[in-house]
Design a protein around this nucleic acid. Sequence first.
DNA 1: TTGTAAGCGTTATCAG
DNA 2: CTGATAACGCTTACAA
Lengths: 343, 343
Amino acid sequence: MSPVSIKDIAKAADVSHSTVSRALSNSPLVKAETKARIQRLAREMGYSPDARARSLVMGRTRTVGVVVTTIADPFIAQVVQGIESTAHDHGYTVLLCSSSAEPEREIAAVEMLRSKRVDGVIVTSSRVGALYLAHLERIGVPVVLINNHSEHGGRYTYSVGVDNQHGGHLATTHLIRLGHRRIAYVSRPSDYRSNQERMAGYRQALAEAGIPFESALVVPGTGRAGGGERALPVLMVDEPPTAVFCYNDMTAIGLLRAAREAGLSVPQDLAVVGFDDILLASYVCPPLTTIAQPKARMGQQAMQMALALMATEDPAAEEFSNIVLKGKLVVRESSKTRDGMRS
Amino acid sequence: MSPVSIKDIAKAADVSHSTVSRALSNSPLVKAETKARIQRLAREMGYSPDARARSLVMGRTRTVGVVVTTIADPFIAQVVQGIESTAHDHGYTVLLCSSSAEPEREIAAVEMLRSKRVDGVIVTSSRVGALYLAHLERIGVPVVLINNHSEHGGRYTYSVGVDNQHGGHLATTHLIRLGHRRIAYVSRPSDYRSNQERMAGYRQALAEAGIPFESALVVPGTGRAGGGERALPVLMVDEPPTAVFCYNDMTAIGLLRAAREAGLSVPQDLAVVGFDDILLASYVCPPLTTIAQPKARMGQQAMQMALALMATEDPAAEEFSNIVLKGKLVVRESSKTRDGMRS
DNA sequence: TTGTAAGCGTTATCAG
DNA sequence: CTGATAACGCTTACAA
């Protein structure tokens, strides 16, 4: 037996279905008495309004599509939580899509969201290629990018991200204040804009302290633990650095592990700073100093931005907006001297 | 301008909208030539079928609701990934809802899913109370529970979970094989069924080895790191154990941290085994031996179960099913002697 | 204050 | 092979 509809209630209450519709939306046009009767009846009959039918006539689904590479990434999961809670607070629902970072699936995901007529789309931590972006814009609803890794054009798209240069500067300055002068950077493939920006912050901090930049102190990583592990031996030759700033926490954690196996003690022999502040960071040993990205807040902001865009008639008319949040330095053992900070 | 509909295409192709509908669903009833013409036109005009309208007449949304306490929990996120990928493979979409473990929001979530007319619901790691369950059943679609923590009745509900007793037995037996005889258990509030079952496995293993059960060796935890930290001092009095099995990894990790601060070395002074195999487990030091729950697979199985249930006309007719997956022992440093296993 | 009718975008039935 | 027409469940003029 299919769920009860307003027609069923209409029959039971001996009124027309439009009266039921009005009564249930609490319209003042309905006599208080009949309204009460209808509402009670609806409750008794276990009525649940059909959101599809409603959205069909109302023109809005009150649903946002969220595209992630994988929800299994704890960083992304925290961002999504921010999105979901804000969405919920505003009566919106989240349709989740994983792209597995495969362009083909990304496009399928977008097509799917288009079919479900979501009111907006939020894409997290993606490298939106030109092709993908084109598809995204075709969808005809506001699109908000979180921590987008590629240069992007497209005036249909808005974004929220962390201030990478500021974070890189914060991390490096912290190490300089601790007295370090030879500070290395373990990078990520440089077509990632975030990598370039973090490194720019690193160089800026060095320059401000009058420390010359040495390209030998920049070694390539991958963004994953393995990259950090392989970076260590490359680093520890000739004149090794006394401190290292890593593109992200996973890189730093890999490096930490390699250091332990190499018999180096952190932070005495080598201070280490990461970026992200993933859950792991506070549990590895030694606990990792890092630049905390406001993950949940990024999700909230993105959702709020989407809400604002969905509210305006013509999103394209809105001026281009690009929210940039500041990360925060979180000092832990991996960058303290045994007797506390030197600074 | 609203998206193009089959009517728009009909006008452009100078046919009726029903012919367009047939052509787009590749019906053999349409002349090949017109079919091709219509399909080309649809592509050119950027047509995207309206899933809401379709579902309204088809009676199915091809959407499953997934209710989680919080997606920010990495364990849950991995389960959800399993759900999402399987759902995607079968043309289904995931509607995500966080309940924040608040009964009020749980009920709101269910009501929302009902309104969106999802074809099925999957609830992860919840303690479904009687009230909540009643609401769940009202929804009228199959409900699959993952790692349900409470005793449940209700023949409308199906479940997927890990074999807790088997896992507890596995963990304890492992410690016994290493030569331990005084083995403690750090529990979780005992109204959690999973706790009772894991402890049953622990007691079973002790019994099999002829080791008497001592209630003094069972100390209460909380399921979070704090509980493990507070458990250590309670444990290390009189005749302390040489090994401890913890309800879950977070408990074990808290205990590990307390042990380090107390100057105890793990595993030499105290061997530690957890349960879950969360990401953290392999990164703490020492890396934690644990019982791995097949998180993604649990999600997959739950989704497959949901798919099967949604396919049958009358879910209630299906016999009660309750898939139980076995966990796997993952041995890491926290339960090895310095020179390797004694066994 | 209430009822009638049209329409949202589909699919499906039934004639032609 | 194709076109009317109804139906899915709802909201909203327009009438009464």
